[in-house]
């Protein structure tokens, strides 16, 4: 992104030093986590990262900070339920990637599946349900908003945020990382592992922010019926994948056997469990989305959340 004339932040100038302090604290805390993870990994508590990632840490920390700033300066705050949805969704994503749960997920297929469903389905689902766009946008510094509103960012979003493209990506990304040789590589190569996690989070956010957009159609680009169709459409491929993995007669993902399992359970038991985890919870979440959309239609959706503007994600 090129440097552009930046719109001034709406925050009063007295806040500048406070925000500098906050960014400093975020940086310092990140550096502390990085240092311990790198040089004294045995000292890291269980709530700390098993493998520290600057990307994952900064994304979670900045989203929290900007949302909190938005809450502090918003005229009408989102309800406590929506605030809770945001923080719980974010915590689920961050917690399943940047705590020692990640170690467990690297060493048991069923837990790997649970992790991937938390970061691709449940976490983004709750985040999207909280409709955080306005609040985050209020708390975000001007230059970040300028980047998010730039022509390049809009072009990418225009391309991806179409019902067919987003649905195909939602199913495709989930399938892609379960292709056995690709899964094997991702579980051994730490760089690919990070790419996998990032792609799952972004893909989940794209899909659920579109499907659960609380605004009626004129500001929202797609009708509720279309979006209910998206959620409905991914249910069949989700079922198919869950069934294939659960019922596969042989071991598909040998990396867990080779590198060792978290506790001694049989490879096929682990795979059956992992298949069920990939089968039932995503299906329930998608069904919940369909129900929520139906409910919105029934209680006349144009009265819903008039305060929410176009989601910028």
């Amino acid at each position: 992104m090129s440097e552009r004339a930046l719109p001034r932040s709406p925050l009063p100038t007295g806040r500048v030093s406070r925000s500098a302090l906050a960014y400093g604290a975020i940086g310092l805390a990140g550096f502390a986590l990085f240092t311990v993870s790198q040089f004294r990994p045995a000292l890291m508590p269980l709530w700390g990262p098993f493998e520290f990632s600057w990307w994952e840490y900064l994304a979670a920390a900045l989203a929290t900070y900007w949302y909190a700033c938005g809450l502090a300066s918003a005229k009408d705050r989102p309800s406590l339920w929506r605030q809770a949805g945001f923080f719980v969704g974010l915590l689920l994503i961050y917690g399943s990637l940047q705590t020692h749960f990640d170690y467990a997920a690297q060493h048991l297929f069923a837990l790997n599946r649970a992790q991937q469903i938390l970061v691709h389905d449940l976490g983004p689902f709750l985040l999207a349900l909280s409709a955080p766009a306005t609040t985050i946008a209020t708390g975000t510094p001007g230059w970040v908003r300028a980047c998010a509103g730039s022509r390049a960012a809009r072009a990418v979003l225009d391309l991806l945020a179409r019902p067919v493209v987003a649905s195909l990506l939602f199913v495709g990304v989930f399938y892609f990382w379960l292709i056995p040789p690709i899964h094997f590589h991702a579980m051994l190569d730490a760089r690919l592992y990070e790419v996998m996690n990032a792609s799952m989070v972004l893909d989940g956010l794209l899909f659920w922010l579109m499907v659960l957009d609380p605004r009626p159609q004129p500001p929202a680009r797609w009708s509720i019926a279309t979006r209910a169709g998206m959620a409905f459409g991914v249910m069949t491929p989700q079922t198919l994948l869950g069934a294939v993995v659960t019922l596969a007669p042989r071991e598909l993902y040998p990396s867990y056997t080779l590198c060792g399992r978290l506790f001694p359970i049989d490879a096929m038991t682990d795979q059956h469990l992992g298949g069920l985890v990939s089968w039932i919870p995503p299906l329930l979440i998608t069904a919940a989305a369909v129900l929520i959309l139906l409910w919105r239609v029934m209680r006349n959706s144009d009265t819903a959340h008039p305060d929410i503007q176009r989601s910028a994600r």
Partner: peptide
């Protein structure tokens, strides 16, 4: 190794140990 040395090596090669 010390606990740190062992954890670092096991993490590097995705080894489960407990």
């Amino acid at each position: 190794g010390t606990p740190d040395q062992l954890t670092a090596l096991a993490r590097r090669y995705r080894v489960a140990f407990s």
